[in-house]
Design a protein around this nucleic acid. Sequence first.
DNA 1: TTGTAAGCGTTATCAC
DNA 2: GTGATAACGCTTACAA
Lengths: 341, 341
Amino acid sequence: MKSSGQTTINDVARIAGVSKKTVSRVINRSPLLNDDTRRRVEDVIAELAYIPNPQARALALRRNFLIGLVHDNPNAQMVMNVQQGILEALHGTEFELVVRPVDRGSATMLVDLRHFLERQRLFGLVLLPPISENDTIAKLCAEIGCRYVRMGSARLDDDDHMVASNDCEAVRGATEYLIAQGHRRIGLIAGPHGFRSARERRLGFEQALADAGIALPRSMIADGTYTFESGLTAAERLLDLMPRPTAIFACNDEMAAGVMHAARQRGLDIPKDLSIVGFDDTPVAAHVWPPLTTVRWPIASMARSAALKLTAGLDGEDIVEEPSLFLSTLIRRASVAAPSH
Amino acid sequence: MKSSGQTTINDVARIAGVSKKTVSRVINRSPLLNDDTRRRVEDVIAELAYIPNPQARALALRRNFLIGLVHDNPNAQMVMNVQQGILEALHGTEFELVVRPVDRGSATMLVDLRHFLERQRLFGLVLLPPISENDTIAKLCAEIGCRYVRMGSARLDDDDHMVASNDCEAVRGATEYLIAQGHRRIGLIAGPHGFRSARERRLGFEQALADAGIALPRSMIADGTYTFESGLTAAERLLDLMPRPTAIFACNDEMAAGVMHAARQRGLDIPKDLSIVGFDDTPVAAHVWPPLTTVRWPIASMARSAALKLTAGLDGEDIVEEPSLFLSTLIRRASVAAPSH
DNA sequence: TTGTAAGCGTTATCAC
DNA sequence: GTGATAACGCTTACAA
């Protein structure tokens, strides 16, 4: 070991009595290596507690050991869950996680992202919804040679490049649950236009009503933007209807919390006068009063699989096929009851 | 530009008719450079849209252009705000943000962190509370030669190595507000033992009562762990008291939300029967019913300053002294009123 | 199966 | 002020 710093590949080579290249082969698990040699080198590596320098590897390989998380998702808990899932997958590997929020509205978003990818030569990208729905970004990655996996509410890409939840079916199930409770006048607070998740969730809602033979007048659907305030405003419109809905499905928890405020402000009792269902099962769902019935999707597991897809087949590991489709669960809490009239 | 890939320093040097070293000097804003030369090189750089390769720089400089965010904070919104603040500071620079959650309880935490730092040779670290309160980590950074800035509820280090909020004074102010509303029996739900923020907030609470000449029986203080459930449990104990408190200060919003549930379960009206104040101003504070009066601290600004301290004086930029102390604000919402009896 | 030489794209050293 | 030349620590040809 040179006095100046860390143990290098040269130290290992010298002490093991082999060339650097042989050590390099051991590090990279080259199959064409004498077992004796490999073992000898591995012993020296262990003894010196040698760790290959990621910067040098990055330079030589023309590729960094960084996984990027690209997102424009305003929901903190969601982003954190994704980070946690990715880090779980990356734990014990040489990969690190770099976060990169982007602004969907910005005109320079694509150019910025391209610069970022070209400069940093990331190993791969996990794309969070809603930006993951942008096909141009996927094409950009393919063009630059950066691996990517997109997370989404439905199949956005081929299996190697996406993990998806089944939002449509999940919402259908949740709506069927409301119907089973006896509700017939059910309002929907939809998500923002252009969001795939909004489309899928609305579709599931409509299907459930259609299957049950319940008419869905346009007035029972209010537009929202996934924010608390938009939920509040939309709920005010729905609650002005005569007769008003006995239940409201909000396409995410934030908006459902807004519905609760709107109901409370008019003195409505939840769930007696109004049942409410949300989507996401963010912490707010459990912490509002009454606790919110909602749909939980396995966001951390999905992110974990996404990261594993990215790094699959690198370490000479057995290639385990990661799942691409993930199922959601209806979490039943106190915000739903049979209609009282 | 070679056919294979990106523009390199060699291309710039060749076309500008200077040596690589001179280009390097331009990139690194060396002061000893002929203005003519500099301008010529800069022109070529602009023309070729040349971007220095961060991997090669990292190898040569023995230091990466990565800022690490080390945290063990369970609050998603808080972590996201910090990330946002750091990224704001890093925007337009060559730095990227790497996130590194750690497990405070783990026996190998320090060893893992050391490995991480030695391997990745991070440029610097932003440490989030509560892990930022750990002096051993600061020493580790100093030893390894990794810059760091600690975020905290009070001055944890010298000005170059910390940014702090004034939790003690903020809570004193919030408590004085309750007192000014007429409250005399005020309960405290404290934070976890060993957390500096818990200590500071409790201190502020005690000071305010003492200053107002209000006795604080031990029974009026309940232990919490910054979680919703602990807030609920602690509130149940406080609300069992005879006479019960007319107001409760919870040391964070999560616990305050728990207090609301506990109050609701016993049919207490908020704020008529019980006033509640929280701390942090996380989204839940605005979304519970009634909206929660709470203390907001400028977490993103603090993180931004932390990152700026880390990267200060690099680009030959004017060195602007970043502030070290940040003030909190009391956000008055509907969860507080004068006591009704 | 292993080793040698030549990069990868940058910065540091030390002359000129 | 500027430029050869040698690092930085690793990998990829290409030999042997």
